[in-house]
């Protein structure tokens, strides 16, 4: 019988053809770092991180726009913590706060409703970042704002969708043996979303949950399945083959697809989500933020999130660029691959 100990033994002693696997979800990156999974793998199994950390794929023009908005009269930029320290072309929201910009950190989008209701003369601009998993919450926020007659909330959307990015990676990087597919995203999209990529690129994709055992099991299966176009779902408790219709209906009511610019990947058609025309009063000018000027020219975040290099191959890693003083987005977020490498 295949036991977890046998899986560990196989992966530690693996001596076959070298394998490079990409985990696409930032939470997987974080689990891999936190559970010390790399210390349990043979040198022939390499794990690289993909563009699955929402903060890491945000382009500089988006951050610049938030910074600019934070200085506007009667305006407060509202954000989750990770976004605070990511630099745009020059400055981060943290820098703006020190320079008199109005920035407020929140833990949940729904906290914003209360804030907006209590401060009617202030416009709250919410830095809406995330993937399929987070989008329904933003849709819910706008729905509740309308129901409660709250009109001083706007989203600056950098919301993105994952299938287009996976397709882009498959086209660009032929070194990948397989993907640990994002469990949270698949819980919304359904695992069937992955089948076309598996077949088109002859690459296995294994959907995993977020326990270290699941991730390690996914690595094992991908090592066994290499070069087959199979999709396996290990996260059956949360992921079905078909999409979560409730979430899909909610998102479709408020958002429509459009081109989005990803740090390191460039503009990908239909990979962004923007509020539909009839809800435009809630949009803070999200479209067309395509410029991406790195804060530090030597930063290689874009190569890291496309799996071309490992974080330590960047000249800045651990020297000029540390979690205390990040030069690129991948070092900021706990889910960023540079941060995970540095802290494990």
């Amino acid at each position: 019988m295949l036991t977890f100990d046998k899986i560990k033994e196989f992966l530690y002693n693996y001596d076959g053809e070298p394998v490079t696997l990409m985990e696409v979800c930032g939470t997987h990156t974080s689990v891999i770092a936190k559970s010390g999974i790399k210390s349990l793998l043979s040198d022939k199994i390499k794990l690289v991180s993909g563009p699955g950390c929402p903060v890491c794929v945000t382009v500089s023009s988006y951050i610049d726009k938030l910074c600019e908005l934070s200085l506007q009269e009667n305006t407060v930029v509202v954000t989750f913590g990770d976004m605070m320290r990511v630099k745009g072309s020059e400055r981060s929201l943290n820098d703006m706060m020190a320079a008199g910009g109005k920035v407020k950190l929140i833990y949940s989008p729904l906290e914003l409703l209360k804030l907006a209701k209590e401060n009617k003369n202030t416009t709250f601009i919410f830095a809406a970042v995330g993937f399929e998993t987070t989008t329904p919450i933003y849709a819910m926020l706008i729905r509740q704002a309308i129901e409660k007659n709250i009109h001083n909330i706007k989203l600056l959307s950098s919301l993105k969708t994952m299938p287009e990015a996976i397709d882009w990676i498959c086209r660009q990087n032929h070194q990948l043996t397989g993907f640990i597919a994002p469990g949270h995203v698949c819980a919304i999209t359904g695992s069937d979303m992955l089948v076309p990529f598996a077949e088109k690129y002859h690459t296995p994709l294994v959907v995993a949950g977020f326990s270290s055992e699941q991730v390690l099991s996914a690595v094992y299966m991908l090592t066994k399945l290499k070069k087959t176009g199979k999709v396996i779902n290990l996260y059956r408790s949360a992921v079905e083959e078909s999409p979560n219709m409730e979430a899909k209906t909610l998102v479709d009511e408020f958002f429509e697809s459009g081109p989005a610019c990803w740090r390191g990947l460039g503009t990908i058609e239909q990979s962004g989500l923007y509020l539909k025309g009839k809800y435009s009063e809630f949009d803070a000018g999200s479209r067309g933020l395509t410029e991406d000027v790195g804060y530090n020219n030597a930063c290689r975040c874009s190569d890291v999130i496309t799996g071309k290099i490992s974080p330590h191959e960047c000249a800045l890693f651990g020297k000029a660029c540390t979690p205390q003083n990040p030069q690129g987005a991948c070092m900021v977020s706990e889910e960023g691959s540079c941060h995970s490498y540095f802290t494990s």
Binding site: P54, G81, D82, Y107, G130, F131, Q324
Partner: peptide
């Protein structure tokens, strides 16, 4: 930094 919750 500040030990904040993740965002996705």
């Amino acid at each position: 930094g500040e030990g904040l919750p993740r965002i996705c």
